[in-house]
């Protein structure tokens, strides 16, 4: 009988699992700084753990909730476009005090797409952590200069009469794209609508999911 717990006899094709990441210079520095901050009483280990837990608990579902509300409630959409920070908080969601959320709306004439050419600025408060490609040099350097071919690679082909508006998030503003509401969704509930609002549609590299 084959023993599934006995890895030494497994026919493994992947690389061995090592602790390389944990042993890196940056990881060692993080441990040193963290230990010092806790020793000095700036925060406790439990407070830090709680912040990490909160950060990792955020997901694009929060942003989808905001977009779905904007789709069904024109007055809310107007407030969201005028002052996104307050409109997001109105739904009981937490924002960051170090940056400011701004919402931009896709229309029949204009398609918005977000990038941070200098690093990886992203509306973490309502979308969670950014995808790996958003932080890649390839996306950051290419989408500013050649947005249409890059969007094509994501599977989004836009006609020339739709203006592409790239937002380079270089400072303290975090952009949220409000994608267009898909056709034929008049009878959907707010929760069902939120299910159509994908992460990528709120970055602007895709449309909201159609039915």
């Amino acid at each position: 009988m084959h023993d599934h717990d006995d890895h030494s006899h497994h026919d493994h094709s992947h690389d061995p699992i090592t602790s390389e990441a944990e042993d890196s210079l940056f990881a060692a520095r993080e441990v040193a700084i963290r230990t010092l901050l806790i020793e000095k009483g700036i925060f406790s280990a439990d407070e830090l753990r709680h912040r990490v837990e909160l950060m990792e608990g955020r997901s694009p579902a929060l942003g989808a909730k905001v977009v779905a509300r904007a789709w069904i409630d024109g007055a809310y959409k107007a407030r969201l476009l005028a002052d996104a920070e307050t409109a997001v908080q109105e739904l009981g969601l937490e924002t960051m005090h170090t940056s400011k959320i701004v919402a931009v709306e896709n229309t029949d004439d204009t398609h918005n797409v977000i990038v941070c050419t200098l690093c990886s600025c992203y509306p973490i408060a309502i979308l969670g952590r950014p995808p790996a490609w958003y932080k890649s040099l390839a996306y950051r350097s290419r989408v500013v200069a050649n947005p249409r071919p890059v969007l094509e690679e994501f599977g989004l082909s836009l006609p020339n009469d739709v203006a592409v508006r790239v937002h380079d998030s270089t400072a303290d503003i975090r952009y949220l794209v409000i994608p267009q509401r898909p056709e034929g969704t008049e009878n959907l509930s707010e929760v069902e609508l939120a299910g159509l609002v994908t992460r990528d549609s709120m970055i602007g590299v895709a449309l909201a999911q159609s039915l």
Binding site: V144, A145, N146, P147, R148, P149, N160, D161, A163, V164, R165, V166, H167, D168, S169, T170, A171, D172, I173
Partner: peptide, 28 residues
């Protein structure tokens, strides 16, 4: 902090898209 809008055709030589494409960026 301001948001400034540029025509893509002003930023890049041989920009491949139509002239109404723009880039908006946050500048101090």
């Amino acid at each position: 902090l301001y948001q400034v809008c540029f025509d893509q055709t002003d930023l890049w030589v041989n920009y491949s898209g139509p002239e109404q494409d723009t880039l908006r960026i946050d500048l101090f």
